[in-house]
Amino acid sequence: MPADTLTAGRTPATHAPGSGSLQRFARRRSTIAFLMTLPLLAVIVGLVAYPAGYGIYLSTLNRTMVRNIGFGNYEILFDTDTFWSVAWQSCIFAITAVLLKALIGFWLAHMLHHIPAKGQRKWRGMLLVPWVIPPALSTLGWWWMFDPTYSSINYVLSIFAVPAVPWLGEPIWARIAVIMVNVWYGAPFFMIMYLAAIKSVPEQLYEAAAIDGANGWQRLRYVTLPMMANIISITVLFSLIVTFANYDIVRVLTNGGPRDLTHVFASYAFQVGILSGNIPRGAAVSLFMLPILAVCAFFVLRGVTRRNKEQM
């Protein structure tokens, strides 16, 4: 019997060595895992990697897109005052807006967390409304409210004897208006993320801190914020990327004006690439922030991984 078994066991290998190793390869866990992730990889390659690669390729072409000029488009952009103005405005817009969204979002989350569960749902729903309305539509509403003739905001200010503000007519007010709308739209996202993070902090840590002698501010400083560090980092990073790439608010509200002083990279890229017909230079504009954001993302995600390893 043992001899038979041995023979029987050896037979397939003797007859078809190639098919055996192919079967083994197909049965390997890593092969199966790869095959199962293939649809997702295809989507990522098709919708992220290809457009990104094509964008980089486009940015190296000349205006007629027939000749490769290397970094020529970037060199021209770096010599343009408008580009540096857009870069400066994009940084002010993104950093201020993200900072305000984070602060307001945290404040709202903190307030909501202390409302009893029943009322909390109602408030949470209401506060999420700005985030669920399509931004192009809500920005149109804001545009009406900023309108020099019919501005409802100016009307309210006039009640308190404050003179009318030229919201979209003067660069400084236009910049503030653009940031205000972005904050109004984005703060609920921060709120909901921070609320989830605050709720996940174990109540006993607060109790332990209270007994250790921490007052309200110290509990926030030494318990809440460190426990939320990962969510704060990821939310800020995500929002920074999205805000740098923001297009619709600027496009609807100011269209980059007055005097191109409210343009951000996306709206300027659209103006240069589509409206002025220089697609390669438009691609160069839109790719300008990529290396800076990539470095930011690297450090933020490294911090998240480190904290995860240490604490979770």
Partner: peptide, 13 residues
């Protein structure tokens, strides 16, 4: 006073 909790309540960070 000082308290020791059932699930320790140590600050993980």
């Amino acid at each position: 006073i000082a308290m020791v909790f059932q699930n320790y309540a140590l600050y993980p960070h």
